[in-house]
Nucleic acid binder design. Structure first.
Length: 325
DNA sequence: TTAGGGTTAG
């Protein structure tokens, strides 16, 4: 602190070096240090302000970040692409729709030319802030050449808004437009399929990954499809899928499967997978809770007591939450 | 010697 406040080796730190420090500290979550350097600076440039703003935003300090917004705007620093993207990205993260929109409007008024990266940041911001139609019209206005990230962003937006059909159809549109998907492309629509009950679409997408694009599904993709199948009551198929996985299923996949078993009130299968999960980690609270809830739903109070006993035996503290019915 | 887009949902 002393070295920083009096300058390094008695020299005043340059704006560039101080800014690098603000950025470094903020990125590591050392916001007190970042603020300290920021406050001490006599001169700050665009990058200094943005680094501080982004640092606060990424660390969830919405209110503090918000206070920097006006000075940034007053200085008119939101004029280049990098600045725009940094600011808009943080606005998306914080749900600052009005602020994000004001940057967008400001730049339109000033005749700013948006590239695909700028557009993607805006699409993501509008989608995350609940304005899926604004995101959609930006995406569809044909002023930019779309790429895999802008497509993924739009697809994620649809998924976020429960528009499973749109998420899936934009995957096909992307292929039609000759853009190669990547692993991320498939995650959002698969999630959307589980939310919207689009079982066949989910299965199709999953298989297209490998067959059409040579993309081996990762554990997350398996987990999503297990969820799609589990929610649709196709527990046996979900189980077969897990067995076919080219790697050992982690707790995450098994927990997804377990919640499918609970949803379908398949206690027999639920016990099997819970047993496996507890062999992986006897302290996995979630497993006890789900098992206990399954038994409670089946009014098997003796078993509920038994689970409680198991928890005590293993020193698992959390009391299972009973579902009300 | 400083700032750039997507990556489940909860």
């Amino acid at each position: 602190m002393l070295a920083l406040s009096e300058g390094f080796l008695g020299l005043e730190l340059s704006v560039t070096l101080s800014t690098a420090l603000v950025d470094f500290f903020a990125k590591w979550g050392a916001l007190e240090l970042a603020s300290f350097v920021f406050d001490k600076m006599k001169d700050r440039n665009v990058i200094t302000w943005i680094a501080m703003f982004v640092g606060l935003a990424q660390n969830g300090l919405a209110e503090d970040a918000s206070k920097l917004f006006s000075p940034i705007q007053e200085k008119g620093v939101a004029v280049n692409s990098t600045t725009l993207v940094s600011l808009v990205h943080s606005c998306a993260h914080l749900g600052f729709l009005r602020k994000g929109k004001s940057i967008h409007v400001y730049l339109i008024r000033h005749g700013f030319i948006f590239d695909v990266v700028d557009m993607t940041a805006l699409i993501d911001m509008y989608a995350k802030c609940g304005k899926i139609q604004s995101a959609e019209s930006l995406f569809n206005n044909n002023s930019i050449t779309k790429d895999v990230i802008s497509f993924n962003s739009m697809i994620t937006g649809y998924a976020l808004h429960g528009q499973g059909n749109q998420a899936v159809s934009n995957y096909f549109r992307m292929i039609k437009e000759g853009i190669m998907p990547n692993h991320s492309t498939f995650l959002s629509p698969l999630t959307a399929c589980s939310h919207s009950g689009l079982v066949e679409d989910g299965i199709t997408l999953f298989h297209r990954m490998k067959e059409d694009h040579k993309l081996g599904p990762t554990e997350k993709h398996y987990s999503r499809l297990v969820d799609v199948l589990g929610k649709a009551g196709r527990v046996e198929e979900a189980r077969a899928l897990i067995r076919k996985m080219p790697f050992e299923p982690s707790s995450a996949v098994l927990e997804t499967f377990l919640s499918g078993c609970r949803l379908q009130k398949n206690i027999t299968m639920g016990i099997k997978v819970a047993d496996r999960l507890l062999h992986l980690d006897a302290m996995n609270t979630a497993v006890y809770v789900v098992l206990s809830n399954m038994y409670a739903e089946a009014r098997r109070w003796d078993k509920v007591d038994y689970i409680r006993g198991l928890m005590r035996k293993h020193g698992v503290k959390k009391t299972p939450a009973y579902s009300s019915f």
